[in-house]
């Protein structure tokens, strides 16, 4: 699934314009705690979150996230949008809640890219 298809699947609205819509999304991860994201997410996942501050984008850059979906129609502050624009990462807002979004993406065949924290370093393969 690419970012464009993801946007359609979640009835999403793309907030920034610099993103590459053909970027491949390999799976998903949903979390509001950024340290949890950093601890568990594998590269090239879509991050579903209710958090709107710039740290969401920073975290995504560090963790090689393919796209960010903000749940429940949240609109991020301008600093977050600016940062997403600068980092060329897709920032999408969707009217659905976290549970509905996880369900939709999973049903569409997107696997979980969350790894249990006890599994050891997530990028040592």
């Amino acid at each position: 699934m690419n970012v464009q298809e993801l946007i359609e699947l979640v009835d999403g609205h793309l907030i920034n314009t610099s993103a590459d819509l053909s970027r491949e999304v390999k799976g998903g991860c949903g979390a509001d705690l950024m340290s949890d994201v950093l601890a568990s997410i594998q590269p090239e996942a879509v991050l579903l979150t209710g958090l709107c501050n710039p740290q969401v984008v920073r975290t995504s850059v560090m963790a090689d996230v393919a796209a960010i979906v903000l749940v429940r129609g949240k609109n991020p502050p301008q600093v977050t949008i600016d940062l997403a624009e600068e980092e060329n990462i897709a920032l999408i807002t969707s009217p659905f809640g976290m549970f509905e979004l996880c369900g939709r993406l999973h049903r569409a065949g997107l696997p979980s890219l969350e790894r249990s924290v006890s599994d050891g370093p997530s990028e040592l393969e």
Partner: peptide, 16 residues
């Protein structure tokens, strides 16, 4: 509320 302070920071670092 900012998404931090989950008590995973140092643990994450140790893993990386």
């Amino acid at each position: 509320e900012l998404g931090f302070g989950a008590g995973m920071g140092l643990v994450n670092i140790a893993r990386c």
